[in-house]
Design a protein around this nucleic acid. Structure first.
Length: 443
DNA sequence: TTTTGAGTTGTTCGA
DNA sequence: GTCGAACAACTCAAA
């Protein structure tokens, strides 16, 4: 009897899983394991951790109770598990992130004679594989998208009909208790993920090109938490998509994930620093930063978004841009402060998408918005939440305001009870942001 | 080799 | 109200 280990990381599913097939083909029985790595648990925050644990319980059930969840450093636990189970190979989905790639190298070294076999990745195209004709990485999305499309779609991996899971004789200490969180998190598990995808595909994707920017309608796919942990693979989604306008736009949104993962793969330091330093003068995060975190800025669309983040561990993408612009351009705070707050709370917090989404807004990233593109929180609200449905949902103090006043409550004779004054004047701070940029340009 | 045009997500101002 | 211009600098691919 031969044994292989399937080490799950960001691929918590059994369907469309190439590394799972590789593990099965390599041995008679497969021992599924997951390592709770403190280096990753620390920055995850309770929302993402709770969602992770719930998905691990689903995976435990799906593997007939064979999944073993172990604590410790991967470079010590994986070799130990390989010894204890007598595994002849360890299989993973590749990880090209700054932490993951270094970790996998350490594990491969520590495993010595037992090969660590990487098959596939959490992305439609493995980061690092699409390059320009001169071999250098793409800096701009649209050429990346063209290259992505011309490469062609890969077919989903078959789901094995029979698979001999084994616990390898290892003790089952179970999945830890969920950390305490009051956020309403999405339903965990592969069935829930596939149901969410089917519902979106059958209904909302047809009108996605139009409705995706309407936070009140709330008709985006909400699949990001499943994609983050690989409960769904983007390849599965691409394979199901047709060529209508909505489907094309949605597919393109999925490619953004691949693009940003590719950028981070080539510039790992950009997770913590400016990809393209601007040398701007920034303000230290203080009281205003706290007001932003808590949704008390006095700008309704900003406060609605920040409160949704705390309540759901998720924020509509249009609003993510608005609140990011507010922090970086109106409060002049360096983007990593905002990105860290997002990563603490987001249930979908993907390092590449989050850090580079922030850098796009801040103007320090690849394909960055020009410095003069400063979002106006009032006009953004009027344009994308015209009847104020989104604001009313998240800022109850403003529920009774008329459609027009809800984006500018300070124009009312009395500010509604409990709602704060504006912490800054947008017009003045916009000018301040432009002035600071002009100053930095001379450096 | 050089040139040219287009490039996720915006705002303001003045005609 | 509507519309075009201006607001940089750089990447990339096609001509």
């Amino acid at each position: 009897m031969t044994t292989s280990i399937l080490w799950f990381r960001r691929d918590l599913r059994l369907a469309d899983h190439p590394a799972l097939l590789a593990a099965r083909d390599a041995a008679d029985e497969v021992v599924p394991v997951f390592v709770l790595d403190d280096a990753l648990r620390g920055p995850s925050g309770p929302n993402r951790l709770a969602f992770l644990y719930r998905n691990l319980r689903d995976l435990h059930d799906r593997t007939g109770g064979a999944l073993r969840v172990v604590h410790g450093k991967p470079e010590t636990t994986i070799p130990r598990l390989a010894r204890e189970t007598g595994a002849e190979s360890v299989h993973v989905s590749g990880d090209s992130g700054p932490y993951g790639s270094a970790r996998d190298q350490r594990v491969a070294d520590a495993l010595e004679d037992v090969p660590l076999v990487a098959t596939g990745s959490p992305y439609g195209v493995t980061p690092g594989t699409l390059t320009k004709s001169d071999g250098s990485p793409y800096q701009v999305f649209t050429p990346f998208l063209r290259a992505w499309r011309s490469r062609g779609l890969r077919s989903p991996a078959l789901t094995p009909r029979r698979l001999s899971w084994s616990d390898g004789g290892l003790p089952d200490s179970g999945v830890p208790r969920d950390p305490s969180t009051s956020a309403r998190l999405p339903e965990p598990g592969e069935d829930a993920a596939r149901a969410a995808w089917a519902a979106f595909r059958d209904k909302d994707v047809s009108d996605y090109a139009r409705t995706r920017n309407d936070p009140g309608a709330d008709r985006t796919s909400r699949l990001s938490p499943y994609l983050k942990y690989g409960v769904l693979h983007p390849r599965t989604l691409h394979a199901d998509l047709g060529t209508s306008e909505g489907e094309t736009v949605f597919a393109q949104e999925l490619v953004w994930r691949d693009f940003y993962a590719d950028v981070l793969h080539h510039s790992p330091a950009s997770a913590r620093q400016d990809l393209r330093p601007l040398q701007l003068d920034y303000d230290r995060p203080g009281k205003r930063f706290e007001a932003w975190q808590e949704g008390r800025t006095g700008y309704p669309i900003v406060d609605a978004g920040m409160r949704q983040l705390l309540a759901e561990g998720w924020m509509h993408n249009r609003v993510r841009m608005i609140v990011a612009s507010f922090l970086t351009k109106d409060l002049h705070v360096w983007w990593p402060h905002g990105a860290r707050h997002f990563m603490r709370h987001l249930v979908d917090g993907d390092l590449a998408s989050n850090q580079h989404g922030w850098q796009w807004t801040a103007g320090t990233g690849t394909d960055a918005s020009p410095y003069f593109r400063v979002f106006n929180p009032v006009t953004q609200g009027q344009k994308f939440d015209p009847d104020g449905a989104y604001i009313r949902r998240w800022v109850p103090e403003l529920r009774l305001l008329s459609g027009k006043a809800i984006h500018e409550p300070w124009t009312c004779e009395h500010l509604p009870k409990g709602y704060p004054e504006r912490i800054v004047d947008h017009a003045a701070e916009r000018q301040e942001a432009l002035d600071r940029y002009q100053k930095a340009k001379g450096r």
